[in-house]
């Protein structure tokens, strides 16, 4: 079975700070990481590899710096890695990103595609389902367990707010991974060495993919949505902060609750 894992390099949004004067993002010094849900996607693919001897390919679309994320995926145990990178892919929204990744996946060949549920910098959860749509294959999102069953079929435990389902899906198919799916393994020392010495990150540009995707479906031009503006969050008018003893604090809270007719 050939598994392709789609990953994204993201800024660690827990570390992002705002410039209090300008309200803009301070990006300097913010570490880049593999998106957490995608780490679980890699681990899920590697577990299938450990059990059934699957071939695992990691791919990402991004700038040249995303090479590091792919090396980490190789060091964890992925067999191959592809960086989908070209100026022509820049400015892509989820529609154009997914059509580009779908083209790369089609070129590489696959049985199963695993993506993270969503990326922490965008939180859209759209690229996975949209890759599946561009490829015309079934999907199961929000996976919290994956088991292989007879033939080319998998049984996926799919999470909802109020229930979970066991769903049987037959490859070719796409699954999006929740962070509760597993605990990603660490890179081994030998893995890190081989990720830089023996394994390589291969580049896929638009030239490589143009048999699989039209120019009007990639990059800024292929993106139906545009960012009109971005702005810092409005902080609401500050309330009153009390540094008082406990009894007084209780009275302040009770008084306020009464004003709002809660009591």
């Amino acid at each position: 079975m050939k598994i392709i894992v789609c990953i994204k390099q993201v800024p660690d949004t827990n570390e992002v700070r705002l410039d209090p004067k300008t309200g803009t993002l301070i990006r300097d010094g913010v570490p880049s990481i593999i998106n957490p849900d995608d780490m679980c996607g890699i681990e899920a693919a590697l577990q299938l590899k450990d059990q059934y001897g699957c071939h695992v390919t990691a791919i990402t679309m991004g700038p040249p710096q995303a090479d590091v994320a792919l090396r980490e995926a190789l060091a964890m145990g992925c067999d191959e890695a592809y960086l989908v990178s070209d100026r022509a892919f820049g400015g892509a929204d989820t529609w154009a990103t997914s059509s580009t990744l779908a083209a790369a996946i089609k070129k590489l060949g696959y049985d199963l595609i695993i993506t993270g549920r969503q990326a922490i910098d965008g939180d859209t959860a759209q690229v996975g389902p949209q890759i599946a749509e561009h490829l015309g294959i079934p999907q199961v999102t929000y996976a919290q367990n994956i088991e292989k069953t007879e033939g080319n079929a998998l049984i996926v435990q799919r999470q909802y707010e109020d229930r979970y389902q066991k769903i049987k899906i037959t490859c070719p198919a796409l699954i999006t991974a929740l962070s509760s799916l597993n605990s990603p393994r660490y890179m081994s020392v030998a893995g890190v060495v081989s990720a830089y010495d023996t394994k390589e990150v291969k580049l896929l540009t638009f030239e490589d993919l143009k048999d699989h995707v039209a120019e009007e479906n990639i990059g800024l031009k292929g993106s139906p949505t545009k960012v009109k503006k971005s702005f810092p969050k409005q902080v609401k008018a500050q309330g009153v902060k009390h540094e008082v003893d406990e009894d007084e604090a209780v009275e302040i809270i009770v008084k306020k609750l009464k004003e709002h007719f809660v009591l």
Binding site: D93, T94, W95, S98, G122, D123, T124, A125, Q126, V127, G128, P129, Q130, A132, E133, H134, Q139, T141, Y142, Q159, Y160, E161, S223, P224, T225
Partner: peptide, 23 residues
């Protein structure tokens, strides 16, 4: 944007080629 809507909406948007803005 429930776990159903977030599965369905991107699929529809990709099929009919239009933009989708999440959450």
């Amino acid at each position: 944007a429930s776990s159903i809507g977030r599965d369905l909406a991107p699929r529809i948007a990709a099929r009919i080629k239009t933009g989708l803005t999440a959450d």
